[in-house]
Design a protein around this nucleic acid. Structure first.
Lengths: 235, 235
DNA sequence: CGCCGACTTGAGCAATCTCAATCATGGTGG
DNA sequence: CCACCATGATTGAGATTGCTCAAGTCGGCG
């Protein structure tokens, strides 16, 4: 168990009053996981709200026949469980650490009590849910109407700061996981990377070099949604 | 403008106190749309929370090049916008009536005020968001790992009450829309229906006859999630 | 130095899409 | 009452995309 990180840095708590923040701190605890470790399983009693402090958490659905589908990957500051709506619920996905990861765990009962006292917290939780929904909707749009190459371009552009032009960076996780995230096989991902060489994308194993983000964006303008504003709502 | 429907019948308001329900009633109004009519557009100011009273509402994303992707279809009792988290947000999908449809429209500002006063409402909104997320997650799982035929089977089984064995019913909307919902073309849907004849599914235009729901369920057991319980949470 | 895991590449195959033709069906106007 | 049309649905043929299986490469690490 490590020291608590500054709660203010979580979007979920950014606007919460100091007193409420203090109440949140009590009973919350930081936990560490190493690569591949399970944080919770689909079907487990949803006894806590869990946030990513540092690292990546992969959310997946497991079918009765045992195969796993990556549904989302959460990173620093995001909630992986969402806020609790009642005690007695269960998680409907499994969560697994990708690389060394630390999380913040808040008992569901306490979170619920705090929301009852502090509508601000409930509304912040609602806002977090809204962001999750927007992300999932984008994912569905992408799966339904974009090719593997288009989805990869979208993924890479999301890693390029909007102003940056040339850009070199390291992929956040390995290509196997990126493939699962995009809903294609490793081989298809590799070929998609190869085809993107024509638009100025080079890769060296895990490092990516984008020759011109603007060019990439232009090439795939139909694919890149409006940069998700902080104020989107509804849906 | 029609008379207000009983608000209690919306999951969102089921557990709300009578007084709060009264406050909700003021300023809310029922609106009617005919087939194909637009309810709001992606990018519009999210000035209201809108629920489906009766009918179907198709939610879609429109790309810069103009093509539309169906993201979800909402029916009786569901919220199509989600609860507001702030004034000034915008809708990130468009909404369009499928067949004659009536909606309930509640100004965002009023809804926000009510949530601030009534944490119960905020938590109910959170629960609604959680259901939406669960639905979208199921959709993503389906798109990523099931074939067109499997997705269709899943769709049909969702229309069969769990106890029913033989079952005859009318599709909720036309096959073009079902195809869009499942993320395939009309032609692929038609062929998927044809292949399901082997497992005892007949169709006559818009009527479906399921010879044995149990058999269908058995055949596609990997595809049919646990019947979504009222208590699921997290993710 | 050689193994191992991650990645890449190739070849053939399966699923789905596109384009096009055909077919039913319900409504309309003569 | 019937011919005609518009719409939705089905079916076929060929092109494409992505998958599977298999082999080969590359880089790091014991």
């Amino acid at each position: 168990m490590t020291e608590l990180p500054p709660l203010r840095e979580f979007p979920l708590f950014a606007r919460l009053e100091e007193a409420a923040l203090q109440r949140m701190t009590t009973e919350s605890k930081v936990e560490s996981y190493h690569d591949g470790e399970t944080i919770f399983r689909q079907g487990d009693l949803a006894s806590a709200t869990i946030l990513v402090v540092k690292g990546f958490v992969k959310l997946l659905r497991v079918s009765t026949s045992g195969d796993e589908t990556v549904v989302s990957i959460k990173s620093d500051g995001a909630s992986i469980t969402g806020a609790p709506c009642s005690t007695g619920g269960v998680y409907y996905v499994s969560a697994e650490a990708v690389g060394p990861t630390t999380t913040l765990k808040i008992p569901a009962s306490r979170f619920l009590r705090l929301m009852a006292d502090e509508p601000t917290l409930a509304i912040a939780a609602l806002d977090e849910a809204r962001r999750t929904i927007a992300e999932l909707v984008g994912e569905i749009e992408s799966l339904k109407s974009h090719s593997a190459e288009q989805r990869l371009a979208r993924f890479l552009l999301a890693l390029c700061p909007p102003e940056a032009e040339r850009r070199r960076f390291r992929l956040p996780y390995d290509k196997r996981l990126i493939a699962a995230r995009l809903g294609v096989t490793q081989e298809t991902l590799s070929r998609a990377f190869a085809r993107l060489r024509d638009v100025g994308i080079r890769t060296e194993t895990r490092d990516v070099f984008v020759e011109s983000a603007a060019k990439l964006r232009a090439q795939f303008r139909d694919v890149v949604g409006q940069p998700p504003s902080q104020n989107e709502s509804g849906g």
